[in-house]
């Protein structure tokens, strides 16, 4: 045996444990998932080959489209809000204030806390008759918001009852927006830390030069901070988009019964996938949902790359 073969063999040997686990619990399932999506597959196993029938079924399924719309609204509201709030806080914290560490800790606490615990506590805070939030709002004479139980769409509420809006334009329900609100509270700490690191990487001399030229705060933000922080912004956008797409535990714990309510307005794609696969045990159909959702995420990520990355300035 030459030295090269020996080295190659040891290489494979060292890789083997990781490889075996990944083959058994990633590669094999992904392959099997493709196959399952082509069958009418229940818990007992494959029943009938249906070709692309499951995919066609999902694309014709009004509940799927509603869940996609709910997910879309969730992402559309949560991601930009998280982005701007955490950038704003990061800029405030970057002013060499005293007690930066303490602030960072406070913002970061919700990040390490499990989504289950956070959801349980927020369900209590959002309780309509006894909850803390409605009590605090009552100081401002705002009463009777039924947070997690209100299925009415935001745009419908703004437009008023006299305007007839098609279903797709009614907007996220108050219940879904309650989940968005909690998501922002849980998510900003992570992004504040990322933005702070990005801000501290910007060369201070740019700001000094701008100050000499008499630039105001807004001009400095617009011309220096915003362009130079764009790689971080892009990263935050992608990461919070992906995590918003994965919303699941909140729905399981906070909404309903039945979960996904009221009127299915919080039934996001992940929850619909769970319900189909593990409550109704329509495994083939569930696999098709997973692939279609994955294709959509992939397409959106590529679109973001094409349209946004050109505007990101590296280095």
């Amino acid at each position: 045996m030459t030295r090269r073969t020996r080295e190659a063999l040891s290489g494979f040997a060292w890789l083997l444990p990781a490889l075996v686990i990944l083959l058994a619990f990633r590669v094999l399932p992904i392959g099997l998932s493709v196959r399952m999506s082509l069958y009418d597959w229940g818990m007992a196993g494959a029943r009938a080959f249906v070709g692309l029938g499951n995919y066609a079924g999902v694309l014709r399924d009004p509940v799927f489209w509603q869940s996609l719309a709910s997910t879309g609204w969730y992402v559309l509201f949560e991601v930009p809000l998280i982005l701007f709030i955490s950038l704003f806080i990061a800029i405030l914290l970057n002013q060499k204030i005293r007690g930066l560490g303490a602030y960072r800790t406070i913002y970061y606490l919700p990040v390490v806390t499990s989504i289950v615990a956070v959801s349980v506590v927020w369900r209590w805070i959002l309780q309509p008759d006894r909850g803390l939030l409605n009590y605090v709002l009552s100081w401002f004479h705002i009463a009777g918001i039924r947070w997690l139980q209100d299925p009415r769409g935001l745009f419908r509420l703004i437009a008023g009852p006299s305007v007839q809006l098609p279903a797709a334009l009614r907007g996220p329900s108050i219940a879904l927006l309650s989940l968005v609100m909690m998501g922002i509270w849980k998510g900003i700490g992570y992004n504040v830390v990322i933005f702070l690191a990005g801000l501290q990487n910007i060369d201070k001399s740019y700001y000094e030069a701008a100050r000499i030229d008499g630039a105001g705060r807004w001009a400095m933000f617009r011309r220096i901070t915003w362009p130079l922080i764009s790689p971080t912004t892009y990263y935050v956008l992608i990461m919070s988009g992906i995590s918003a797409f994965e919303t699941f535990a909140q729905v399981w714990i906070m909404t309903g019964p039945p979960a996904g309510g009221p009127l299915g307005t919080t039934k996001v794609v992940m929850y619909y996938f769970y319900e189909t696969s593990f409550e109704l045990w329509r495994l083939g159909y569930g696999a098709a949902i997973a692939f279609i959702a994955f294709a959509i995420i992939l397409a959106l990520t590529i679109l973001q790359r094409v349209f946004l990355e050109r505007r990101v300035q590296y280095g």
Binding site: P29, I30, L32, S33, M36, E246, S277, F294
Partner: peptide, 19 residues
């Protein structure tokens, strides 16, 4: 390996359950 990291949970969850 890196490509596997990109695959979201739902895609392999159901077959993993069966395995």
């Amino acid at each position: 390996f890196l490509a596997l990291m990109m695959i979201p949970l739902p895609v392999y969850l159901v077959p993993s359950y069966i395995i």
